[in-house]
Nucleic acid binder design. Structure first.
Lengths: 204, 204
DNA sequence: GTTAGCATGTAAGGAGTTACATGATTTT
DNA sequence: AAAATCATGTAACTCCTTACATGCTAAC
């Protein structure tokens, strides 16, 4: 999976922007934030921190380490780290909306302009829509009856992507309307899809 | 991502069970089947084929290669390959329902007993339910208002997993009731899915 | 006093990608 | 004649995980 080098880096920088943290805690927060999918191991995090230290993006905080407490290495963002984070957050190209990157990018949306947010959201939506067209075409002229389970998997895949697209559309609309998505997309007791009108805006 | 060694192997064996194929075509089918997520590169496939050749799981088919056609290396399953596939398909432990493996496992469900299918489906559902409990707990006592975007991401994650659980529940029910899932979870209005009965095998 | 959780790391290796390299065949 | 797509591979590299190694501190 793509998840290019800067992924952990961005996540760490983003979290440290909210205050200094040490590795162990950082990992917990990261897993809490993105842990619905995969969990990050120490074997990834600690080396990444070392690397960022060397690159001077973070530094060991001159610490409020309570004496009684076991020594922990608390990190803080440097000037360079702040600049790097800004740079990463203002990227609007494919790297921003690729599968492995989008989530982290999205989680720190609060630190960017709406203009950039919109571009990233729309970029991702377009990407998913392309994917959708492709797999729907496939679905049509494939062994639909040859392998029922494979077909069911495909069908479910299509639905998942469609769902994702709707989510993005809601978010885009919310951004444009200066409001947060108001929960209405929730599937909980929902019979289904509350038919909230998506656009006063041309689709796509 | 887990996607342990046997993942490609199982997919290749499964496809070759439906008839001999050459590398290029194999890759196309694989991407068609699972391509909603990631695409498989030649750099992965060809070495895997070589390895399987060495392990005697597949062999170059004594081929129906039309003379006019450019020579292609067509592979076929060997006895050993067939046995290995059976072995892989009858595994009911965690490896069968782990994130990176489940899809492929599911796609070839047609080649296993209902008993095994049920165990794998239930295993996966349990795994996802555990995940769900964990992230819902997190969601409750987190910075819900600190970072609205992170919170929204979390909320969406919860919904996605819930959806996945419902899908699995429908499938399990369908297996038990000897019928195919009848679309009820679908968000599409689309009425189809011929509801052909799966088997007359007694319930687990 | 022992288990569970806190805390930091390293080494080895797995699984896959990208980029490179090569060439035939079909379509435009 | 060029472009697309068929077809097969290799080499280098990336990102990440598992397993190992170590030791402190809080709770039971």
């Amino acid at each position: 999976m793509a998840r290019r080098a800067e992924t952990i880096e961005m996540a760490v920088l983003g979290l440290l922007h909210e205050g200094p943290l040490h590795g162990y805690e950082l990992r917990k927060r990261l897993n809490l934030m993105f842990g619905w999918g995969r969990v990050l191991s120490y074997g990834s995090l600690y080396p990444a921190l070392k690397k960022m230290l060397r690159a001077n993006l973070i530094e060991e905080a001159t610490s409020p380490v309570p004496v009684t407490r076991r020594p922990r290495i608390v990190y803080d963002v440097t000037e360079a780290g702040h600049a790097e984070f800004e740079r990463l957050m203002s990227e609007v190209g494919p790297t921003a909306w690729e599968d492995g990157n989008f989530d982290i990018r999205f989680a720190f949306f609060g630190r960017t302009d709406m203009e950039i947010r919109l571009r990233v959201l729309e970029g991702r939506r377009t990407r998913l829509q392309e994917r959708l067209v492709r797999i729907q075409q496939d679905l049509e002229r494939t062994q639909a009856e040859v392998n029922r389970y494979a077909a069911e998997l495909q069908r479910h895949g299509v639905e998942s992507v469609e769902r994702e697209v709707r989510w993005l559309s809601d978010l885009i609309q919310a951004e444009r309307g200066h409001t947060l998505p108001d929960q209405s997309a929730s599937a909980q007791p929902a019979p289904e899809q509350p038919a909230q009108p998506i656009s006063t805006i041309p689709d796509h």
